[in-house]
């Protein structure tokens, strides 16, 4: 099939930039190892306590290294279970020092939820039967909102918690 000369130039330029773009994405994905959250472990949604990370005493923020933390969260309609404080009250705010390495782990006990610390790239889907994880370094101090960004029912817009990133 004959293609007009100008159209050839246009297509070579367009397809060329497309290839360049995809190569950059591939370098990010396979050389730098930056993939979107795709954790493969499964769990019984009716018996999440079976998994060490989601035992009641392990929920919420835990320090695991000098500057390393794990945050285990149970997502369900319509709140994030971040464990209990010393007085036995439900935790709704977690505080993380700036620059710390944090691993977020969550799963759902009912429907599909979202897990987004608004304004950051901590953004993943939470599905019953699957464990979602994401490791990050919180680099900017501030008060962030952790919110559900996948419709989960009539109280969906109340499903939220606070994440404070502070200067130690």
């Amino acid at each position: 099939m004959h293609i007009h000369k100008y159209e050839k130039i246009w297509l070579i330029f367009g397809v060329g930039s497309l290839i360049l773009f995809l190569v950059i994405l591939a370098i990010g994905a396979f050389y730098k190892g930056v993939h979107p959250p795709s954790h493969m472990d499964t769990i019984d949604p009716k018996n999440v306590q079976e998994n060490e990370s989601f035992k009641e005493e392990n929920l919420g923020l835990r320090q695991v290294g000098e500057n390393e933390y794990i945050v285990n969260v149970l997502s369900s309609g319509f709140y994030y279970d971040l464990g209990k404080d010393e007085d036995g009250k439900a935790v709704n705010t977690i505080r993380i020092p700036v620059g710390a390495k944090v691993l977020f782990q969550t799963t759902s006990t009912d429907v599909v939820h979202g897990f987004h610390i608004a304004g950051t790239n901590v953004n993943m889907m939470v599905e019953p039967g699957h464990i979602s994880t994401l490791e990050t370094i919180m680099q900017k101090p501030g008060t962030y909102t952790l919110l559900c960004n996948e419709y989960c029912g009539s109280g969906h817009h109340y499903m939220a918690a606070t994440v404070e990133v502070y200067e130690p």
Binding site: A29, P36, P37, S38, M40, M125, G129, H130, T133
Partner: peptide
């Protein structure tokens, strides 16, 4: 893309 349980290679 941000879903658990799907191999990131196939997503790519």
């Amino acid at each position: 893309l941000t879903e658990p349980g799907i191999d990131p290679l196939w997503k790519f």
